[in-house]
Design a protein around this nucleic acid. Structure first.
Length: 153
DNA sequence: GCCAACGTTGGC
DNA sequence: GCCAACGTTGGC
């Protein structure tokens, strides 16, 4: 059982898009960064992840998803019509991976980036590390519970 | 729109 | 293997 964080730009894909299909699993595809891919390969069904909105007016954690399928080939990589097409990828050499997620919680109010930064218990969080740009990140169990408490207060 | 930080690419 | 150039991310 491990904890993670997924970033998404709400203009492209927001938690409301997930919430519009209740109970349905959603492939988390399009990740084209090796470190982020490797984190997804380390995920197992039952793991939990925060859903983070980036590049928007109020960046922050807006809910939780559950991992419901372990990493498998991201076939969007070898679809020439796909926005995240990678000409090096193919069915025999997938290169990229994705997992399936399902919405678990949508917070009534987001835990904003400003709140995260202001919380001393989260000072070591990878999300807050200088220059961090990874779209998939691990979260420690302590961080997970701290942030949940912020979400539910 | 700006800019810092970072990953990737490609020449050498 | 080094490193400059480039593209991207993401907060502000």
């Amino acid at each position: 059982m491990a904890y993670w964080l997924f970033k998404s730009e709400p203009a492209s894909f927001s938690i409301d898009d997930l919430a519009a299909r209740p109970g349905q699993t959603e492939p988390w595809d399009g990740v084209r960064n090796f470190q982020a891919r490797n984190f997804m390969r380390a995920m197992a069904p039952g793991d939990l992840a925060f859903f983070y909105h980036s590049s928007c007016s109020v960046p922050g954690i807006v809910g939780e998803v559950g991992i419901c399928r372990a990493a498998y080939p991201d076939f969007t990589a070898w679809d020439p019509a796909n926005h995240h097409h990678d000409p090096r990828a193919s069915a025999s050499n997938p290169i990229w991976s994705m997992v399936d997620v399902v919405l678990r919680a949508r917070y009534p109010r987001p835990v904003t980036l400003a709140q995260l930064k202001a919380c001393p218990a989260l000072s070591g969080m990878r999300l807050l590390a200088r220059g961090n740009r990874l779209s998939v990140l691990p979260v420690t169990e302590e961080e997970w519970h701290t942030i949940r408490a912020l979400a539910h207060r």
